[in-house]
Design a protein around this nucleic acid. Structure first.
Lengths: 149, 149
DNA sequence: CTACCTGCAAAGACTTTGCACGTGT
DNA sequence: ACACGTGCAAAGTCTTTGCAGGTAG
């Protein structure tokens, strides 16, 4: 019986990320594995608190999560999002998952993922201004169906 | 001799904003006038600190700027931007100026304004998900020409 | 073994809030 | 006159940092 092919299995993706950790000369520690595991499994954008509270086996210090996210962001494995409520959120970077955007409910702060980006060419707007190494962040804000009731 | 017509004069725009203040049942105070004046004159997105330091005649408390920006945001005259450095920035809302986006230099944090948005139809992406009262925020991040040297 | 990572506690940056006084309408 | 706005100071939230001990490679 063959394995499902619908996507790289969780452990495959995790192993890939751990390999990248090593390539970036970062150590594969219990905390970092747990953080990456959480991001692979649930991959919404999460606040530091949310990531921290997903620690089950052995907890770890909040400061460690902050430091880990900073390191992971620096390697490009993880991306920081800010949705205007003053709290940073993190998710696997485009490189590690896929290009997408978000819809954020102004009321309940629920975050939806938009898997299809119809804006492949959009970075050229900034290219025209002479910028390099361009990325873009496109977020929608609105009132979600639930909150409209 | 006729007045230039290229755009509403500074004082015209300011008066319009002050009228809106009244309509929103907010009082026209010295601080608020100064804040709106600063936004009309220079209208980049500014941090609270930057707005505060533009006070010339009579200074005002930082807390007052925070409170004023919150009120102005609530009325929809002003919009809050977050560019990922943990500090909120403010500018006149789309309604009070015009729709635009930003290019932010990852190195020097310089913020450019992109006056032309080619994405009029883009909010439909979120509409399809059942969201209402949609707005979008599109920011580009890159390395500006200066920092490339 | 050595450099890197972590926990803990303290400090920092930005923002919010309580209260008494001041000011716009 | 009265409700709203402001200054000041204190507190709150999120994040960063110093240091001593712990751990991966």
């Amino acid at each position: 019986m063959k394995m499902s092919k619908k996507a790289a299995s969780t452990s495959t993706r995790l192993n890939h990320l751990l390999a990248e950790l090593k390539q970036s000369k970062l150590r594969v520690t219990e905390s970092r594995v747990a953080i990456l595991e959480a991001l692979v499994d649930h991959h919404g954008p999460f606040t530091i608190e949310e990531i921290h509270s997903q620690f089950t086996a052995k907890s770890c210090d909040l400061a460690t999560v902050y430091r880990s996210m900073a390191s992971l962001e620096k390697t490009g494995m993880v991306r920081r999002c800010e949705f205007g409520d003053g709290t940073a959120r993190f998710e696997l970077s485009e490189r590690e998952s896929h290009h997408h955007h978000h819809v954020i409910c102004k009321r309940c702060r629920r975050v939806d993922v938009l898997d299809d980006c119809e804006l492949k060419e959009i970075d050229r707007i900034a290219q025209k201004r002479g910028f390099a190494e361009i990325s873009h962040s496109l977020e929608f804000f609105g009132v979600c169906p639930n909150c409209q009731k």
